[in-house]
Nucleic acid binder design. Structure first.
Length: 639
RNA sequence: GAUUCCGUAGCUCAGUUGGAUAGAGCAACUGCCUUCUAAGCAGUAGGUCGCGCGUUCGAAUCGCGCCGGGAUCACCA
C-alpha cells in the first residue's frame, strides 16, 4: 500500500465520517515547493458536501487525518489547500526498506508475455537517425516492460525483399564492377546503400530522357486537342497526358514537371529491368536468388555492427521473404465470414466505411497480396506461435492509419487477441529543413552519428582533463559510454509521440539535461564510496537506524524522489514512454548534485550521519543506474 | 478537401486524469576549484502557454471556432 493510497483511503473515511458523504476517489498531489508540506489535498471539490468555507473544510479534514494516521507530522491550510507534512520517521522507514537494494525486481514466472516489434529495417540501405529513434525506443520500452513485471520477446521483421531491394541489386550488377565490402573496405549496408542511390540517379537520367523524347515530334505538329488524344492513347492517363502537352508547349508548372518525372521514372528501361528482376526473384530464379543472398548477407553484417554499437538486440527475427506469402488463407476465412468482399474484377477488400475508414484492398485483381495482407498473416502466425498477452508494434506515426485498419480487420475477423495489439506510434525525426529523405541524401547516417558522438566525447574528456588515470582500453570504453549515452538520452528524453528536431550543425550537448551529467553524478557517488572504503568506512554493514536521524530538507526531497521510482516505472510501462524515466533520473541526479554541493558527507563529524549519507548516496547510485539501464544507457564508475 | 497529431522562454523540451506565483537545459550575463571529481554549484535576465469565445470557485490543461505546421487518405511498402 503506497502512502498516497493510504492517505486517499483515510480521506474518503474522513469525508464519510465528517459530512456523511461517499466519495469514490480522492487524489493527492505533490505540494508546491513554496509552501510547507509534502502532499496536498485540494478541498474545493468537497465544499458541496461539507457546506463550509474552504479553510474550515480543509482544517477539519486535516485534523481527522492527523489524528488517524501516524505518518502525518502536521498540516497547514492555505485557502482551499490542505498541505500535509509527512513525518521523518515515515521516510526513514521507507529508506530502510530500500537501502542498498535494487529498484528493479525480476518478472515473476507467470508474468504476462509481451511481444515488442521494433527496428524493422529495409535491406537496401544503412540505418539512419529515424531508425535510431525506433531502435532506442523499442529497446527501452522492452526494458521498462520487463522491469514492470512482464516477459518480453523482442522481435524484428526485416524487410528483405521487394522492388527496392532489386534496385540495389540491379545497380550493383550494372555499375558495381564486382565491388564487395572486402574489396572496398565499406561496411556492407553502406555499400548496398550506395547502389540504391546510384539506381535512383541513373533512373532519373533515363526518366528525363524519356520525358524529353516522348511524343515530341508528334505533339509539335498537331493541334492541342489532337495531341491530347494521341498522348492519351499512348500513355493511358489523361492527367499525365495533359501535363505532357503543356510540357511540350513550355506551359507546364514546376509541380507538373515533377509529376511527369515521377511518372516516367516508372517507365524507364532500368525500372522495367528491376521489376523483371523482382519477378525472377519471386519465381525463384537461381542467379537472382544467389545475388540476393550475397548482398543481403553484406547488409546483415553491417547491421550487426550497428545494432551492437547501439546496444540493442532481438529474441526473434522474422524475414519478409518468408512472411509475404502469409495472409492469403485469412482472405478465404474473411470471405466466408462475410467480413471481406470480392469485387467483380476478383480483387478482395474490407469495407470499413461504417467505422469511418475507407475500403481497403487486401488482394489485387491478379491475386497477389499487398502489405496489409502480409501484416495480417504475420500477426496471425505470431499469435499461433507465441501465446502473447500483448503485442506492440514500434512504428512511426506515418503508419497510424495502416495499423488502425490492421487491428480493425483482425478484430472483425473475430480474433480475441486483436484487442491486445498496440501501435507504439512515434514522431518523425526532422532536420531543420524538414523530413529526412534517403533517396535525396538528406539523411543523418546512424553509424556516422555514433562515431561522431564518441569522437566528441573523447575530445571533451581530453579538454577537461578527465579519465587520465585510465588505461587505453578503459578510456575507449568510457568515450563510447558517454558519447552513445548522450545520443540515447537525447533521443529518449522527448515524448515518443512528438516529432523531434535534430540539428546536425549543433552537436548534442554534454552539459545540463543530458546523459553525461547523470553519468557524472553516478561517478561522483562511486568516487565517494571508494574513498569511504579506503578510509575503512564499511557503511554497508552498519545499521544507522538505531540512531535518531534528523533529515535535512534535501535528504527528505531525495527520499521523496526515490519513493516515486515505482510509480514512474509503472506509468512509463503503461504509457510505453521512456521519456518519463529519463526526466525522472535527471531530476534525481540534479537533486543529488545539489545535495552533494551543500552537504558534507565524509567530512561530517558524527559518524552515524556519515554512514547514513553514504548509504543514501549508494542507494541513489543504484536508482540512477537502474533508471539509465531502462533507457539502455550504461553508467561508468570513473570519468 | 477529409481524418489525425501538434503549437509553452531566442533554441531544444518538461508540465496536459483542471488547482496555488507555468518549470528545466542550451545560448547570454555574474560569482564559486588550497575543502568528498567544476561534464558541477549558486545567481541575473528571458513567457499575452498560437488567437478568440465558452464551461468552472479555478484553464497551458476541458469544449467550440479561427490561424499556423506535420502526417495520412494507393490493387506502394
Amino acid at each position: 500500500m503506497t502512502l498516497e493510497h493510504t492517505l486517499s483511503q483515510k480521506t474518503i473515511e474522513a469525508l464519510q465520517s465528517l459530512y456523511g458523504a461517499s466519495i469514490e476517489k480522492v487524489s493527492f498531489e505533490k505540494t508546491n515547493p513554496d509552501f510547507e508540506g509534502d502532499l496536498t489535498l485540494v478541498v474545493f471539490p468537497f465544499l458541496k458536501v461539507s457546506k463550509k468555507k474552504p479553510e474550515d473544510t480543509a482544517t477539519e479534514i486535516g485534523n481527522y487525518l492527523e489524528n488517524n494516521l501516524a505518518e502525518i507530522a502536521s498540516f497547514n491550510v492555505v485557502k482551499g489547500f490542505l498541505n500535509i507534512v509527512i513525518a521523518d520517521s515515515f521516510w526513514l522507514n521507507y529508506f530502510k526498506s530500500i537501502n542498498g537494494r535494487s529498484f528493479i525486481k525480476p518478472a515473476p514466472e507467470n508474468a504476462p508475455v509481451v511481444m515488442v516489434e521494433y527496428s524493422s529495417p529495409n535491406t537496401n540501405k544503412p540505418l539512419h537517425l529515424g531508425h535510431v529513434r525506433n531502435n532506442l525506443l523499442g529497446f527501452s520500452v522492452s526494458e521498462i516492460l520487463k522491469a514492470a513485471g512482464n516477459k518480453v520477446i523482442k522481435t524484428n521483421i526485416v524487410n528483405d525483399r521487394g522492388i527496392h531491394i532489386c534496385k540495389s541489386m540491379l545497380a550493383w550488377q550494372l555499375f558495381g564492377n564486382g565491388e564487395t565490402p572486402a574489396s572496398s573496405g565499406m561496411k556492407g549496408d553502406h555499400l548496398v546503400g550506395k547502389y540504391y542511390v546510384e539506381f535512383d540517379k541513373q533512373n532519373n537520367i533515363e526518366a528525363l530522357n524519356l520525358l524529353h523524347t516522348t511524343n515530341r515530334n508528334k505533339v509539335n505538329n498537331l493541334s492541342i486537342e489532337d495531341s491530347v488524344k494521341l498522348v492519351q492513347f499512348e500513355l493511358g492517363d489523361e492527367k499525365i497526358n495533359n501535363m505532357m502537352v503543356n510540357y511540350h508547349l513550355s506551359k507546364s508548372t514546376p509541380e507538373e514537371n515533377k509529376a511527369l518525372l515521377e511518372f516516367f521514372k516508372n517507365k524507364t528501361p532500368l525500372m522495367q529491368n528491376a521489376q523483371d528482376m523482382l519477378r525472377k526473384w519471386e519465381a525463384g530464379d537461381k542467379d537472382v536468388r544467389a545475388l540476393w543472398e550475397t548482398m543481403n548477407g553484406w547488409v546483415y553484417d553491417g547491421f550487426a555492427l550497428s545494432y551492437k554499437m547501439l546496444g540493442v538486440d532481438f529474441d526473434k527475427i522474422y524475414y519478409e521473404s518468408n512472411t509475404y506469402i502469409l495472409g492469403k488463407n485469412i482472405i478465404e476465412d474473411g470471405l466466408a465470414k462475410g467480413v471481406l468482399k470480392r469485387r467483380p474484377d476478383n480483387s478482395v477488400y474490407a469495407d470499413l466505411t461504417a467505422e469511418g475508414l475507407d475500403e481497403k484492398t487486401l488482394l489485387r485483381s491478379d491475386g497477389t497480396s499487398v502489405y496489409m495482407t502480409q501484416d495480417l498473416g504475420t500477426a496471425l502466425e505470431r499469435a499461433k506461435e507465441v501465446n502473447f498477452d500483448k503485442h506492440i508494434y514500434t512504428v512511426g506515426n506515418e503508419q497510424d492509419y495502416h495499423f488502425k485498419v490492421l487491428f480493425l480487420i483482425l478484430k472483425k475477423l473475430g480474433y480475441k487477441w486483436a484487442d491486445e495489439l498496440y501501435h507504439l506510434s512515434y514522431g518523425m525525426v526532422e532536420l531543420p529543413d524538414g523530413k529526412m529523405k534517403s533517396r535525396e541524401g538528406t539523411v543523418v547516417d546512424a553509424d556516422e552519428l555514433m562515431d561522431e558522438m564518441i569522437a566528441t566525447a573523447k575530445k571533451t574528456a581530453e579538454e577537461l582533463g578527465k579519465a587520465q588515470d585510465l588505461d587505453e582500453a578503459d578510456k575507449e570504453h568510457l568515450y563510447k559510454t558517454v558519447g552513445l549515452g548522450a545520443l540515447k538520452y537525447f533521443m529518449l528524453k522527448v515524448d515518443p509521440k512528438k516529432k523531434m528536431l535534430f540539428n546536425p550543425s549543433e552537436s548534442i550537448d554534454f552539459n545540463g539535461n543530458t546523459a553525461p551529467f547523470i553519468q557524472f553524478n553516478y561517478v561522483r557517488i562511486c568516487a565517494l564510496l571508494r574513498k569511504a572504503k579506503e578510509g575503512l568506512l564499511n557503511f554497508e554493514d552498519v545499521d544507522v537506524f538505531t540512531h535518531n536521524i534528523h533529515l535535512l530538507p534535501k535528504e527528505k526531497e531525495l527520499l521523496v524522489k526515490l519513493h516515486g521510482f515505482d510509480a514512474v516505472l509503472k506509468q512509463a510501462a503503461a504509457e510505453l514512454n521512456p521519456s518519463l524515466i529519463a526526466n525522472y533520473v535527471y531530476d534525481l541526479a540534479k537533486e543529488y548534485s545539489q545535495y552533494y554541493h551543500e552537504t558534507n558527507i565524509l567530512k561530517e563529524s558524527e559518524k552515524d550521519l556519515i554512514m547514513f549519507r553514504l548509504q543514501l548516496s549508494n542507494t541513489i547510485g543504484i536508482a540512477i543506474k537502474s533508471g539509465m539501464g531502462l533507457l539502455g544507457i550504461e553508467v561508468p564508475e570513473r570519468m
